[in-house]
């Protein structure tokens, strides 16, 4: 079962990539692959952020607005006064940790709290950048435009994100305990862990990756907009699930989440190459998602019976 869990996202990505190359051979190059996937890098980071929340059995409806806010901070403060910018980023991550602690302490439904917070993040972003603008710090621009030998930046970044989060969440001891919060929080309490602290830590992780997503996005776009990443909320949830994660039980896969984000990005490009009418595109994206989930369910059933 565990092997299927990661096999399926890999196969879906490979099939989609093959179809895209067949339809648009120009994409099969260093330059082409980078263009196809560079906007997937911030989505992958946001998906990992969402994964940290889903890992502890919650769901985050504010990540899109949060990434937008981080993007606005990057394009304004981090560019004009790096120190204040860094402090603001740290404050944002702390705010996320606080949100996790409050959700746990008051036993509030995360879906409601995060939905409410999405308006707070959105308001702050508008306050910071009432009209679209700002500028990406030069060093950030340089990182996102770097041209490593042989493999394009987008692929290197995806590998890096997947590798680091795999180590953090799957290999490290603390990661295992965090997944335990989603699996069986009562057992953790009995073993002497402070679940509120753990949950705050998981949310801080989400905040950190949310901030990184905003920075990566501004590095690519060169300027920000208070609504720049609103789509990321749904994309990130879909990415986690597509990548083999589940809403309950702390069952998540960081590598799968990154692959899920790449697959969703590629699906949109693929549909555009097919010249599908925009009215059908959202439906078709949903159909791809359902197709993969159906395949997973079939594999899962078979895994149970054998």
């Amino acid at each position: 079962m565990n092997r299927y869990r990661i096999l399926l996202p890999v196969v879906s990505l490979a099939v989609l990539l093959g179809l895209t190359f067949w339809m648009q051979p120009r994409a099969m190059s260093y330059f082409g692959v980078n263009l196809l996937f560079n906007l997937a890098v911030p989505i992958a980071l946001a998906t990992v952020a969402q994964m940290f929340i889903i890992m502890v059995n919650d769901i985050d409806l504010s990540i899109g607005a949060f990434v937008s806010l981080a993007a606005c901070v990057t394009a304004t403060w981090l560019n004009d006064a790096p120190l204040i910018g860094l402090l603001a980023m740290a404050a944002l991550i702390l705010a996320y940790a606080g949100m996790g602690a409050v959700i746990h302490a008051l036993e509030l439904p995360a879906i409601v709290v995060t939905l409410g917070m999405s308006f707070v993040w959105g308001g702050l972003a508008l306050f910071l950048l009432p009209t679209p603008g700002g500028a990406a710090p030069e060093w950030l621009r340089a990182i996102m435009k770097v041209k490593p030998p042989l493999v394009p930046m987008a692929v290197v970044a995806a590998l890096l994100i997947a590798g680091v989060t795999h180590l953090l969440v799957i290999r490290a001891g603390l990661g295992t305990v965090l997944r335990g919060v989603g699996g069986n929080p009562r057992a953790l309490t009995r073993a002497g862990w402070n679940v509120m602290q753990l949950k705050a830590l998981a949310y801080a992780g989400a905040g950190l990756f949310g901030v990184l997503a905003g920075m990566a996005l501004v590095g690519l776009t060169t300027a920000a907009d208070a609504n720049i990443a609103l789509r990321y909320t749904l994309l990130s949830i879909a990415g986690v699930i597509l990548g083999g994660g589940e809403f309950t039980g702390g069952k998540v896969s960081p590598v799968g989440a990154v692959i899920g984000a790449l697959t969703l990005t590629l699906a949109a490009s693929f549909l555009s190459f097919m010249r599908l009418s925009p009215d059908w595109q959202i439906g078709a994206q949903g159909a791809i998602l359902i197709l993969v989930l159906t395949a997973r369910l079939i594999f899962a059933r078979r895994g149970e019976t054998t």
Partner: peptide
């Protein structure tokens, strides 16, 4: 957006 597409 007047700015968010500048990179692309």
């Amino acid at each position: 957006s007047p700015t968010a597409l500048n990179g692309a």
